[in-house]
Structure formats: C-alpha cells, structure tokens
Simulated assay, not measured.
Amino acid sequence: MFGFLSVIAGLMLVQTPVSEPDDWGDAPETDFAAALQTPQARAFDFWIGEWRSNWRLRDPDGLGFAAEGQQVHQQVFTMLGGKAVVELAWPLEATDAAGRASGISIRYLDGETGDWIMAQHWPRPGWDGVAFMDQLIGPEENGRIELYSHDPARSTPETTSTRRYTFTDIKPDHFRWEGANTGDGGDSWSTWTVIDLYRLGQDAVSTPRGGPWPGFQPGRICSEAPHGAFDVLEGRWTVSGADANGEPVNGHLDAGRLLDGCAIAGVLDISGRETFLAWSWSSMLQLWTQFSLSDAPGERHRYAIASSGGEGAVFFDAPGATIASPTENYYAGLRGAPAAALDRWVWQRLDAEGAVIVQERRASPEADWTTASTYTLSPPSR
C-alpha cells in the first residue's frame, strides 16, 4: 500500500519523528485520530462553509484601505479524514470574471512542530502561478493565526522580505485575513491587503469525485500548452500493481480539473489510505510540480518535479522544496533536485485508455536507476 502511495505521490520517506511522546509522528493511528479532534488541530474549522470575501487594497488617497475590492466566492471543507482544510475560491460574479483570480489552499497542522502549514496556488489571467509551490508556516495562539514565509517576489539582493498572513476577529459569520511584509526582520510591517470574509452558508462542498471542481471555467486562465497535459486523468480510475515490497495494491483515483485549466487534482484511495494529489505547470518555474499530502500520521506534504508533462514525463522527488521555517527560501530546494533525487516516477503511458507509471530508485546520486515497481491505472469499465 505505502509503496504505491510513494509511486504516485512522492511519499517515499516518512518524516522522521522526534522523540517527544506527544508528537503525532510517534502516535499510533488511533491516537492520531483523537489528536485531530483537539482544539489545536481544529483551529481552522471556523472557516468551513461557503463565504463571500472582499479583497481590499490600500487606499492611495487615505490612511486605510479601499471600502470595496475584488469579490471572491469561497468554499471551504475538510479532507483526508479531517487532517487538512481546503479553501477553494473563484470570482463571485461571472460577469466580472475576466480579471479575477481563482485559487486553492491546503492547510494542515504539523504534528512535529505544532505549526500550521499552508500551500496554495492562485493563478490569474495572464499569469499561471507557481504550481502549488507557494507555502507558509506558523502558529495559532489565543485565537490568532499567523503564517509566515520567505517572499522572493519582494526580496532583493540587499533585503530579504518575509511575508505574513494573519487571521483575526474570528466570529461565526465573519473574520479578517491580512497580508503584510517586513524587510527588517519584523521590526516593522507593511500591510498590503485586508480581506473581510462573510459567511454565505454553513454547508461546504466535499472533495470532488471524478469531475471538474466547483467554480471551474474551462480555459479562462490556462488554455494553452503545456497546460492540460494531465487533463486526461479527469474521472475515476482503478489502480492495480504491486508496491516496492512486492505486495499487491488495489484502489482508485478520482481526479478533476480546477483553477480554470491550470491544474488537475484529486484523491488516491488505496485500502482506505487517502492521498491528495495535484499536477500543475508553472511558466515562471518552467517546471511541472506534483503536490501530495497523505492522511498518514506525521507526514508533511511533498513535491516531485518534471520538465515536461503527460506521457513520457519523469517526476523527480524534491523533498527540499517543502517549507521548513518562516524565513527559509524554499524555492532553493528545487535547485539540483533531479541530480540529487533517489526516487523518480516515469509515466510510460498516459491516454484515455490507461496509464502506466514506473517507479525507479537508485542507491546514490551516482548510481544507475533500477525499476522498483510498475503500476497501472485503467478506467473502471475496462
């Protein structure tokens, strides 16, 4: 089972648990399920449901922020047995959609550090984003959540910029989300956006099963190649093969398009173990990324990267690209990843009739690749 999760999701190495007995990485799954019900693990549950958000920028003629900004529709739901909270967003008004962004964020509590980790992908017309590589990390304390990350867009050779997302004023039907930056190590902060969110309803969508995600508008943002190379995966696929230990695996993959053509994502279910997977191309990075997060206790999300998509793609494990601190430049973890990787996944076949993925391993960066396992995805009617 775990071998196949590593083949598709890049989860070859379980995070090394620390020695504290309370850490989720050390806990058996029954204890992990209980840990997911603690207030700390449920700190983002206030967001579950349907929302309208008003994204307000600084008022150039005043001291505060514009009264009205971009209006965004958000659906927020849990995934992976409650381990992750997913925010799915798209323009509130279809008639005003041409210049609006669509987005997704996935956040979960790191059982080793007690921090929340967030990964997001927000493409917009004219810019296809950074393919789920945008990440933040930080704590929840006394009803206030603060997430931080290195900000390469605002950093210069002379000044390193750090970004902060703050979630405050949390009430049943309203809360505030602010974005700010510092270039002096936190001595001063410049707030560049204020987002007010208002609840529209309690109900939230669940993880889409085999079709387009809510809010999807085909081709609005990412209509040209190389986008779409994995769109053939939309639907429900049966999975068969053997894991790295030779044990047979069986399950299914439900995937659908999202972000207006910029990504495809879904859930792999093998014997009750679920993994969220997403594939996306970034013209800025000039890479395909494969994002993965499993429901396994103690496991963080991971990335694998490829220079091309679709049939023939080769994804190299890139564990160094996962955020580890509030100030680390995690994009540096992409440098040299193919040369250093010890695991890779070759898409030998990918079409409407099926897919074949071969897992290859090597003992060191200097060693030759050898086949570890081969897996087959096929439509359920075949």
Results as ranks from 00 to 15, higher is better:
Ser105Cys: 02
Ala84Thr: 12
Phe132Met: 13
Phe132Lys: 02
Trp122Ser: 09
Met118Val: 07
Asp110Glu: 04
Thr113Glu: 08
Gln135Cys: 13
Leu109Asn: 03
Gly69Tyr: 09
Ala97Met: 03
Thr78Tyr: 07
Pro123Thr: 03
Asp110His: 04
Gly82Gln: 02
Gly111Thr: 02
Ala131Gly: 14
Glu93Tyr: 15
Leu88Met: 08
Gly126Ala: 12
Met133Lys: 04
Val130His: 15
Ala131Gln: 07
Glu112Trp: 01
Glu112Met: 07
Met79Arg: 05
Glu112Thr: 05
Thr113Cys: 11
Phe77Trp: 04
Glu68Phe: 07
Phe77Pro: 06
Gln135Ser: 13
Gln120Thr: 05
Leu88Thr: 04
Val72Arg: 01
Val72Lys: 01
Leu80Gly: 14
Gln135Trp: 10
Gly82Leu: 02
Trp122Thr: 12
Met118Arg: 09
Trp90Lys: 00
Met118Phe: 10
Gln120Leu: 07
Phe132Asn: 06
Gly129Gln: 03
Asp110Ser: 04
Gly103Gln: 00
Met133Ile: 08
Arg124Gln: 15
Asp128Glu: 12
Trp116Cys: 01
Val76Asn: 03
Val86Trp: 06
His121Gly: 13
Ala98Val: 09
Glu93Lys: 13
Ala131Pro: 14
Gln120Ser: 12
Ala98Trp: 06
Ala98Met: 09
Pro125Val: 01
Leu80Ile: 05
Ala89Leu: 11
Leu136Ser: 15
Gly126Thr: 11
Gln120Glu: 15
Met79Thr: 11
Arg107Lys: 06
Phe77Ser: 06
His73Cys: 00
Ala98His: 05
Gln74Trp: 10
Arg100Thr: 12
Ala131Met: 06
Arg124Ile: 15
Ile106Asp: 05
Thr113Ser: 15
Asp96Gly: 08
Ile117Met: 11
Gln74Cys: 09
Ile137Lys: 08
Leu136Ile: 05
Trp90Arg: 00
Val85Pro: 08
Arg107Gly: 09
Pro125Asp: 04
Gly99Leu: 00
Pro123Gly: 11
Leu109Thr: 01
Gln71Tyr: 04
Pro125Met: 00
Leu88Ile: 09
Glu93Asn: 14
Ser105Gly: 10
Gly81Val: 02
Ala97Phe: 03
Ile104Pro: 10
Val76Arg: 02
Trp90Asn: 04
His121Ile: 04
Ile117Asp: 02
Leu109Arg: 05
Thr95Ser: 13
Leu88Glu: 14
Leu136Pro: 10
Ser105Met: 06
Gln135Tyr: 15
Ala97Tyr: 06
Val86Met: 11
Ile137Cys: 12
